[in-house]
Computed example of a mutant assay.
Amino acid sequence: MRLHPVDGADARAVCEALPAALDGRHPIALGFSPASDDVVPDGTAAVVATSGSSGVPKRVVLSAAALRASAGATAARIGAGRWTLALPAGYVAGLQVLVRSMLAGTEPTMIDGHLTPDAFVDATRRAAADDLFISLVPAQLATLIDAADDPAVLAALRAHRAILIGGQALSDSIRMRAMDLHVPIVHTYGSSETSGGCVYDGVPLDGVRVGQVDDELRISGPMLATGYLGNSALTDRIFTTDERGERWYRTGDRGFILDGVVEVHGRLDNVIVSGGINISLDRVERAVRSVPGLEQAVVLGMPDERWGEASIIFAEVRGGDCTRMLEVARARVAEEIGRHARPVQLECGELPMLASGKPDRELLRRMIHDVPPPS
């Protein structure tokens, strides 16, 4: 079957194309223009281009059955109702908001442009339903929590039955502030390869199995992607089949399963070697984000003349003393991990963001290494 391009930034266009895509009659390409020889298997609903925030972008092939299975499992866990779209429809989290709406027989409430507290309040009022749902990334939640001293914003947050938070790690400070305000957040874990979030607050959705091989988390279930468009070698490496014929997705994430609860501890490959010692940048970032004012910070590796590699913090600091905040962050990292893991630098300034609402880590890496962006 041939793909039909749809502008993922145009939520209404994606919404219009979705019924035919989920019927398997008209598979859509989101986030890229398919080549004339790009052919997908029967039953494909969409091919989603990943953000490429941590490497080379991939094109993930999602069947109608996988998208429906994911949406159905979400409804079984948190309920069905009226969804608000605050994420680009060209990304899997935004696409799933539309899929869930369609399967629930409801019209999604659209937020045009960036999510602001005023836009959120307006959308909540327009939705005017008892069972309200929305998907956000942590940066969006932080914006709303920061504005929650406005009674209208707090009321809109509390009006939702569930606010799904995914796309990246949620800092403990933001989580605790949301809990203190009685905001009904649900932290989700998943990816484009799993048709979106498939583990909610550490518990896999119905039909999902999470396994652990060495330190790597692996996921099985009916919402797994078919593979990667035009890259059979990568598909065979990332999607494996065990001796029982069960198909698994290798997440590349370090994690553990304790009493049935999944704990994610960052990427297996997000490690630097500093002075001969392996340092997990995910652990450093978690410690840094516990510092007030650095809740949305990004920590990356950089070349270091003395140690070989070191870590650097990027953060948008509002009204804070960057020198003092670096001292506090270094002390926090030394306390939680060790002196060897302390970041050497804090760059204060506006973070470049992807359309998905996540920090553009790849652009920041290029800035570190002074590499021009691809033409």
Rank of each mutant, 00 (worst) to 15 (best):
S290T: 12
R286S: 06
G301T: 02
D360L: 06
G349W: 06
V333P: 15
E309T: 10
R289S: 00
A287H: 15
V344D: 00
L294F: 02
S311G: 07
M353C: 01
V262A: 04
L326H: 03
E350R: 08
E335F: 04
I277N: 06
N270I: 05
L300C: 01
R283A: 14
V261D: 03
A287E: 10
A331F: 02
R342M: 14
P303H: 07
G308F: 01
R342I: 06
P292Q: 15
I277P: 09
V273N: 12
G320L: 08
D360S: 07
S311T: 05
V261R: 12
R330V: 03
G338V: 12
E347N: 07
S356A: 09
D269T: 10
Q296F: 12
C348W: 14
A315C: 12
N278S: 14
V273H: 11
G301Y: 12
N278G: 06
D360A: 14
A334C: 07
V284M: 01
V262P: 14
G349K: 04
L354D: 00
E316R: 00
D304I: 02
V273P: 01
A329D: 03
V271S: 02
C348L: 03
R330M: 13
G276S: 06
A334H: 13
D304V: 04
G301A: 08
V328Q: 13
P343W: 02
V298C: 09
V262T: 03
E316V: 06
I272E: 03
A341I: 11
T323D: 15
T323Q: 15
R342E: 13
L354S: 01
S280Q: 13
R267Q: 05
E285M: 10
Q345P: 00
R339K: 10
P359R: 15
D304C: 11
L346F: 02
W307N: 04
S290C: 10
A334D: 08
A334I: 03
A341Q: 05
V333F: 07
V262D: 10
E305G: 15
R324F: 06
L354N: 03
C348E: 07
K358C: 09
M325P: 00
V333I: 15
E309L: 03
R306W: 11
G320S: 14
D321L: 05
I277R: 12
G338R: 05
R267C: 05
